[in-house]
């Protein structure tokens, strides 16, 4: 159990990084009402763009921004396939994801795996987050504000604040309306196609940013790194919703719940690993089971635990 507690900062850091991706998934899955499978590809695109640019000496923030823009481009492709070409959203996402495999390899000069030279302290010290910093801070060789939990926590708060502001603007509201009821939104004169494209771009931009942070954190980008990202994203969205839906009603808090959902997901994974509860080859099965259980809970709640409606209805007077 002590091992688990010691491993927690690392798990929480990783959860926070995936949480940014999960916020992206939340935007498409919950706000736009689209299951966007682009993320499995755009996550790696972000990591690849970041590592390639950063190791060529590009400034960290420029590289992060470029990673985000590359993700937005991926979202743009999915959006255009869906709106201009009329391909169903889920298929449009799958097509982009498939195509991104080759694009990602091309970004990494046809290598499946590109690394950051974290052995070199000069490179290491320039990074925003690294798994190494978790240990360094607990040993006191690095100041606390370099701890990934703190850094990614601040990034997450900034992202949530910006999204909160954006979805309160006229444009943001029209995106929410598009997801809530497309026919009605269109009837109100909202350009729903543009909004869907925009939503997919924002979402994939966040996903790519998360990929860029993760590749920094683990020290490499790999062509396989986004595989199954959508499941982790959905898991975070659903865990956050099941646990916090009753207390977090504000939009900003709902985004926070998604981030916490991702942290909980990684804590569960870490718990399983630390306590040797099962063979680690069963991790994927465990992920699937966790998501399935959390998806079923709201349904069961409604079906078996809802209070029967009293005769004559509820007195709301």
């Amino acid at each position: 159990m002590l091992d688990f507690l010691n491993a927690l900062p690392g798990a929480v850091s990783q959860g926070l990084i995936w949480g940014i991706m999960a916020i992206g998934v939340y935007l498409t899955y919950k706000i736009l009402d689209i299951a966007d499978l682009t993320v499995d590809g755009s996550f790696c695109t972000g990591g690849a763009v970041f590592v390639v640019l950063f190791s060529q000496g590009v400034n960290l923030w420029v590289a992060l921004l470029a990673a985000m823009v590359s993700g937005m481009a991926a979202g743009l492709v999915t959006g255009l396939l869906h709106t201009v070409c009329g391909i169903p959203a889920i298929l449009a996402g799958i097509l982009t994801q498939l195509g991104l495999w080759s694009v990602n390899l091309a970004i990494m000069s046809m290598k499946a795996n590109v690394a950051l030279n974290i052995i070199n302290p000069d490179v290491l010290n320039k990074l925003l987050v690294s798994l190494r910093f978790v240990q360094d801070v607990s040993k006191g060789t690095r100041p606390f504000y370099q701890h990934p939990i703190f850094v990614v926590g601040v990034v997450t708060v900034v992202i949530i604040a910006v999204l909160y502001w954006f979805f309160g603007t006229e444009l943001g509201c029209s995106i929410r309306a598009t997801g809530a009821n497309q026919a009605m939104a269109r009837a109100q004169g909202i350009n729903t196609a543009r909004n869907q494209v925009l939503g997919l771009m924002i979402s994939n931009g966040l996903v790519a940013l998360s990929g860029a942070l993760l590749s920094q954190y683990q020290g490499f980008a790999d062509a396989n790194m986004g595989r199954g990202a959508i499941v982790i994203g959905l898991a975070a969205v659903i865990i956050g919703e099941v646990i916090f839906s009753k207390i977090f009603r504000n939009f900003g808090l709902k985004l926070l719940a998604v981030s916490i959902g991702a942290i909980i997901y990684y804590m569960v994974i870490q718990l399983v690993l630390s306590l040797n509860l099962m063979d680690s080859n069963y991790l994927k099965l465990l992920s699937a089971v966790v998501v399935a259980v959390f998806l079923s809970v709201p349904y069961w709640k409604g079906k078996y635990f809802a209070k029967p409606v009293k005769r004559g209805g509820v007195n709301r007077a």
Binding site: Q14, N113, L131, Q270, L283
Partner: peptide, 13 residues
């Protein structure tokens, strides 16, 4: 599980 990101989780533990 052939997932590079899981390597980081394991290394952390």
């Amino acid at each position: 599980a052939n997932d590079p990101a899981t390597c980081a989780t394991i290394a952390n533990s």
